[in-house]
Design a protein around this nucleic acid. Sequence first.
DNA 1: CTTGACCTTGTCACCGGCGTCAAGCTTTAC
DNA 2: GTAAAGCTTGACGCCGGTGACAAGGTCAAG
Lengths: 125, 125
Amino acid sequence: MRIGELARRVGVSTRALRYYEQRGLIRSRRSANGYREYDESDVRIVTEIRELMSVGFTLEDARPFVDCLRSGHPSGGSCPESVAVYRRKLAEIDREIRDLLARRSEVAAQFADACPGCLLRRGES
Amino acid sequence: MRIGELARRVGVSTRALRYYEQRGLIRSRRSANGYREYDESDVRIVTEIRELMSVGFTLEDARPFVDCLRSGHPSGGSCPESVAVYRRKLAEIDREIRDLLARRSEVAAQFADACPGCLLRRGES
DNA sequence: CTTGACCTTGTCACCGGCGTCAAGCTTTAC
DNA sequence: GTAAAGCTTGACGCCGGTGACAAGGTCAAG
């Protein structure tokens, strides 16, 4: 299939697909006229990329998953490199949550300091 | 005082101060040679900006606080506009925390799905 | 007079993931 | 035959908050 069909099937722009190719995440054969040609395995790969991105992974994060799929694994997340990324992302998210909680209380403290009573009226902690 | 001294006193780069001026957050008189001139009130304003930024406010978020200080209030956070920003930021942070928690469980679920047993060994929830 | 510290404006670069246009080719449908 | 749709590469723009550099003007000390 050509780029437009792949884009439609996965629900992504052709621009994004060309970008993924430029970053080396997907590949394409070229037909005689220069058009990119894809097959079913590319649908799988791009779907995996989008799933990962939908939960906050970057394209680089997705790379090991793509490699894992290409090497024949039925799941992109079962290779050691992918597992390492999973663990790293979980740790990252945990850190971000901790940072946000800390920031929240700092903001609430500044708020309470600058405007005593403002928070209480809303029942904030 | 000139820009270098203000920068040193608040602990911010001169580049940042010029940027704040360009964005209309601080102002400066110019001495005969074209140098920017500041006074104590500017120290207060820039300090307020940095405090807000340190807890994740953008420059635009800081604008009402600066206006509040300029209008003579002893605290930048006591004006209605500032209070609105505080509330908005708290709501924003709360939303981000919720999103992160949701993402965390999605990642954990994908992980568990792709690599059964990987998470359990770490005692993750 | 010169050095060096300080000031000026202006510009490019960064990071991620594209959107969007430009200018031109191919293919398909009528 | 032609218009529309689809494809190609290339390049700029965005967002925020600077860092870093260029190419100069200014001022005090030696």
